[in-house]
Simulated scan of single mutants.
Amino acid sequence: MNNILISGAASGIGAATARLFHQRGWQVGLLDINADALAELAAELGGAWHRVLDVSDAGAAAVALADFTESRKGRLRLLFNCAGILRVGRFEEISLAEHAQIMQVNVIGMMQMTLAAFPYLRAMPGAQVINMGSASGVYGVPQFASYSASKFAVRGFTEALELEWQRYDIRVGDVMPPFVRTPMVSSQTSVAPILQRLGVDLEASDIADAVWLQAHDARVHRPVGRQFGLLYRLGQITPSALMRVLMRWVSRD
């Protein structure tokens, strides 16, 4: 039976993905720092395997991977690095500690999970890693500076590892949505102009559908949503200066 281990699984995109894969017969493993929400989701999914985990803790990540794969012959079909945090606001108005935490969770946490998962992925023919990318990783978004930086890092890491791990028959890709209606977005105290101008039209279930597609039709990058899909394709052929003008327009105060 196929299995998937999801970080950041307790709410939003992670929870929607867990529900979808569980409904379609996959064994689901849930990881999150929010113990109460995690236990509630695990119960909803019939007692799904779950562990409380801070992905920035490398030792704990390694233990979680070992525990999840112990009863699965040491194999992992799919790791979904979904854990992430966001802080919207002007760069200079956000503390250095908050900027650092965004990078620690969104980038270092992703790397630590992926490294810990490697031996179990390698043991499973056709295994995959899917990283939570973002439209913010294509062109820097004002008032999302450190978040954009983290998603640029996700994009570069994904591209490099996809090439490196072909030798092991491990596919590495990401899903890249624009803004999604999740607790992470709705809890922000600052609303960037780009959110007001472009709106938040995607639901967590839309991204879960994209993860399901990625699991069965692997790509390096999978843009999500009609609007961003068009902008992404345009960005592949359009001079960066034009994209900068577009971003400046949609982000203006």
Results as ranks from 00 to 15, higher is better:
219 R>V: 07
170 I>T: 05
135 A>Q: 14
134 S>K: 15
168 Y>P: 00
150 S>V: 08
122 R>V: 00
192 A>R: 15
110 M>R: 02
227 Q>S: 08
211 V>D: 07
218 A>E: 05
110 M>C: 13
188 Q>D: 07
163 L>I: 05
207 I>S: 07
152 F>W: 14
212 W>F: 15
127 A>R: 09
131 N>C: 10
231 L>Y: 01
156 G>Q: 12
136 S>T: 10
169 D>W: 01
154 V>H: 15
199 G>E: 00
196 Q>L: 06
125 P>M: 05
187 S>W: 04
158 T>K: 11
138 V>N: 11
180 V>A: 05
146 S>R: 11
137 G>N: 11
115 L>I: 00
238 T>I: 12
175 V>M: 11
207 I>D: 04
151 K>D: 10
231 L>V: 02
225 G>S: 09
217 D>N: 14
136 S>P: 04
188 Q>E: 14
104 Q>I: 00
121 L>R: 10
215 A>I: 00
178 P>V: 01
137 G>R: 10
173 G>R: 13
110 M>L: 15
161 L>M: 15
104 Q>M: 12
145 A>I: 06
119 P>L: 00
147 Y>L: 13
109 G>V: 03
184 M>I: 14
209 D>R: 11
225 G>L: 07
204 A>T: 02
194 I>P: 14
207 I>Y: 05
195 L>K: 10
215 A>L: 05
138 V>M: 09
137 G>E: 08
113 M>P: 11
132 M>H: 13
113 M>V: 00
197 R>Q: 12
214 Q>G: 07
217 D>H: 15
112 Q>T: 03
173 G>D: 10
206 D>Y: 04
